[in-house]
Amino acid sequence: MPNYWLMKSEPDAFSIDDLIRQGASPWDGVRNYQARNFMKEMQVDDLVFFYHSSCKPAGIVGIAKVTRCAYPDHTSWDPSSAYFDLKSTPESPRWFMVDIELVEKFPALIPLSTLKQDPALAEMLLVKKGSRLSVMPIQKNEFQHIISTTHYA
Protein backbone atom coordinates (compact mmCIF):
# COMPACT_ATOMS: atom_id res chain seq x y z
CA MET A 1 0.00 0.00 0.00
CA PRO A 2 1.60 3.27 -1.05
CA ASN A 3 2.17 6.30 1.11
CA TYR A 4 1.43 9.79 -0.16
CA TRP A 5 3.69 12.83 -0.27
CA LEU A 6 4.01 16.35 -1.60
CA MET A 7 7.33 17.60 -2.97
CA LYS A 8 7.95 21.25 -3.80
CA SER A 9 10.25 22.51 -6.52
CA GLU A 10 10.78 25.94 -7.96
CA PRO A 11 9.86 25.55 -11.64
CA ASP A 12 12.88 27.57 -12.80
CA ALA A 13 15.12 25.03 -10.99
CA PHE A 14 13.23 21.80 -11.81
CA SER A 15 9.70 21.79 -13.20
CA ILE A 16 7.25 19.05 -14.00
CA ASP A 17 8.16 19.58 -17.66
CA ASP A 18 11.80 18.85 -16.76
CA LEU A 19 10.62 15.60 -15.18
CA ILE A 20 8.70 14.74 -18.34
CA ARG A 21 11.82 15.37 -20.47
CA GLN A 22 14.23 13.51 -18.17
CA GLY A 23 12.12 10.54 -17.18
CA ALA A 24 13.04 9.06 -13.80
CA SER A 25 15.02 11.77 -12.01
CA PRO A 26 16.75 12.20 -8.65
CA TRP A 27 15.18 14.62 -6.16
CA ASP A 28 18.41 16.10 -4.88
CA GLY A 29 19.41 19.22 -3.00
CA VAL A 30 17.07 18.87 -0.01
CA ARG A 31 18.83 20.52 2.93
CA ASN A 32 16.25 20.39 5.68
CA TYR A 33 16.51 17.57 8.22
CA GLN A 34 12.77 16.98 8.56
CA ALA A 35 12.28 16.91 4.77
CA ARG A 36 15.28 14.57 4.49
CA ASN A 37 13.80 12.26 7.11
CA PHE A 38 10.50 12.16 5.22
CA MET A 39 12.39 11.16 2.05
CA LYS A 40 14.10 8.37 3.99
CA GLU A 41 10.61 6.99 4.75
CA MET A 42 9.59 6.88 1.08
CA GLN A 43 9.14 3.54 -0.62
CA VAL A 44 9.07 2.53 -4.28
CA ASP A 45 5.62 3.26 -5.79
CA ASP A 46 4.67 5.84 -3.15
CA LEU A 47 2.71 8.62 -4.87
CA VAL A 48 3.83 12.24 -4.83
CA PHE A 49 2.08 15.48 -5.63
CA PHE A 50 4.53 17.58 -7.66
CA TYR A 51 4.17 21.17 -6.43
CA HIS A 52 5.56 24.29 -8.12
CA SER A 53 6.68 26.71 -5.39
CA SER A 54 8.06 30.25 -5.26
CA CYS A 55 6.06 31.23 -8.32
CA LYS A 56 2.73 32.85 -9.02
CA PRO A 57 0.52 31.01 -8.69
CA ALA A 58 2.10 28.23 -6.65
CA GLY A 59 0.33 24.89 -6.67
CA ILE A 60 0.09 21.23 -7.50
CA VAL A 61 0.87 20.48 -11.13
CA GLY A 62 0.78 16.70 -11.24
CA ILE A 63 1.60 13.33 -9.76
CA ALA A 64 4.86 11.42 -9.67
CA LYS A 65 5.86 8.16 -8.04
CA VAL A 66 8.94 7.09 -6.17
CA THR A 67 11.08 4.74 -8.27
CA ARG A 68 14.09 4.44 -5.95
CA CYS A 69 14.24 4.62 -2.15
CA ALA A 70 16.51 7.11 -0.38
CA TYR A 71 20.22 6.98 -1.16
CA PRO A 72 23.06 9.42 -0.44
CA ASP A 73 22.81 12.78 -2.21
CA HIS A 74 26.19 13.05 -3.91
CA THR A 75 25.72 16.78 -4.55
CA SER A 76 26.39 17.32 -0.84
CA TRP A 77 30.04 16.32 -1.19
CA ASP A 78 30.65 18.03 -4.55
CA PRO A 79 32.41 21.38 -3.88
CA SER A 80 31.18 22.74 -7.23
CA SER A 81 27.52 22.08 -6.32
CA ALA A 82 25.21 24.71 -4.90
CA TYR A 83 24.17 21.97 -2.44
CA PHE A 84 27.68 21.25 -1.13
CA ASP A 85 27.92 20.53 2.60
CA LEU A 86 31.40 20.34 4.09
CA LYS A 87 30.17 18.01 6.84
CA SER A 88 28.73 15.44 4.41
CA THR A 89 31.05 12.81 2.92
CA PRO A 90 30.60 9.60 0.92
CA GLU A 91 31.63 7.69 4.05
CA SER A 92 29.21 9.59 6.28
CA PRO A 93 26.45 11.20 4.17
CA ARG A 94 24.13 13.70 5.83
CA TRP A 95 21.75 14.18 2.93
CA PHE A 96 19.69 11.78 0.86
CA MET A 97 17.58 11.81 -2.29
CA VAL A 98 15.00 9.60 -3.96
CA ASP A 99 14.23 9.06 -7.62
CA ILE A 100 10.80 9.90 -9.00
CA GLU A 101 9.06 9.61 -12.36
CA LEU A 102 5.97 11.23 -13.80
CA VAL A 103 2.59 9.58 -13.43
CA GLU A 104 0.44 12.46 -14.68
CA LYS A 105 0.70 16.16 -15.43
CA PHE A 106 -2.55 17.91 -14.58
CA PRO A 107 -4.29 19.91 -17.32
CA ALA A 108 -4.07 22.95 -15.05
CA LEU A 109 -2.25 23.89 -11.85
CA ILE A 110 -4.28 23.54 -8.65
CA PRO A 111 -3.43 26.78 -6.84
CA LEU A 112 -2.49 26.87 -3.18
CA SER A 113 -5.25 29.46 -2.69
CA THR A 114 -7.83 26.90 -3.89
CA LEU A 115 -6.43 24.20 -1.63
CA LYS A 116 -6.58 26.57 1.36
CA GLN A 117 -10.26 27.31 0.70
CA ASP A 118 -11.27 23.64 0.63
CA PRO A 119 -12.69 22.60 4.04
CA ALA A 120 -11.79 18.95 3.34
CA LEU A 121 -8.11 19.96 3.34
CA ALA A 122 -8.12 22.08 6.51
CA GLU A 123 -5.73 19.69 8.31
CA MET A 124 -3.33 19.23 5.38
CA LEU A 125 0.22 20.24 6.33
CA LEU A 126 0.59 22.30 3.15
CA VAL A 127 -2.20 24.69 4.11
CA LYS A 128 -1.15 25.12 7.74
CA LYS A 129 0.28 28.52 8.61
CA GLY A 130 4.07 28.43 8.75
CA SER A 131 4.42 25.12 6.89
CA ARG A 132 7.36 25.60 4.56
CA LEU A 133 8.76 22.09 4.19
CA SER A 134 9.77 21.08 0.68
CA VAL A 135 8.84 17.44 1.32
CA MET A 136 5.86 16.45 3.45
CA PRO A 137 3.49 13.55 3.98
CA ILE A 138 -0.07 13.74 2.73
CA GLN A 139 -2.92 11.75 4.23
CA LYS A 140 -4.57 9.21 1.91
CA ASN A 141 -7.96 10.94 2.21
CA GLU A 142 -6.38 14.31 1.30
CA PHE A 143 -4.63 12.80 -1.71
CA GLN A 144 -7.82 11.09 -2.89
CA HIS A 145 -9.88 14.25 -2.36
CA ILE A 146 -7.49 16.33 -4.46
CA ILE A 147 -7.44 13.67 -7.18
CA SER A 148 -11.24 13.61 -7.23
CA THR A 149 -11.36 17.40 -7.65
CA THR A 150 -8.44 18.02 -10.03
CA HIS A 151 -10.69 19.92 -12.37
CA TYR A 152 -11.33 22.91 -10.14
CA ALA A 153 -13.42 25.52 -11.90
Rank of each mutant, 00 (worst) to 15 (best):
P119M: 02
S80D: 13
V103Q: 08
K105Y: 05
L133K: 13
I20T: 10
I100K: 05
I110A: 00
Q117P: 03
V61F: 08
E104G: 02
G130K: 00
L112D: 05
L115S: 04
L126P: 05
P2A: 14
D73V: 08
S53Y: 14
Q43E: 06
F38Y: 07
K87Y: 03
R132P: 01
L86K: 09
W95G: 15
I60T: 00
P119R: 01
M7Y: 07
R68E: 12
E91L: 05
K8Q: 06
M124E: 01
L102T: 05
D85L: 15
Q117I: 00
S134L: 11
E10N: 08
K87F: 03
M42H: 15
S88N: 02
P107Y: 11
P137L: 04
P111M: 14
T149Y: 14
A70V: 08
K40P: 01
S53P: 12
T149I: 11
Y83E: 11
V135T: 06
A70C: 07
S53H: 09
L6C: 11
A82M: 04
M124S: 01
R132T: 02
D99Q: 15
V127R: 05
Y71F: 11
K116S: 09
R132A: 00
N32R: 03
V98H: 09
Q43P: 00
R68Q: 10
D99M: 15
K56S: 07
S15E: 05
P137C: 04
W5A: 09
D99V: 14
S148N: 09
F14A: 12
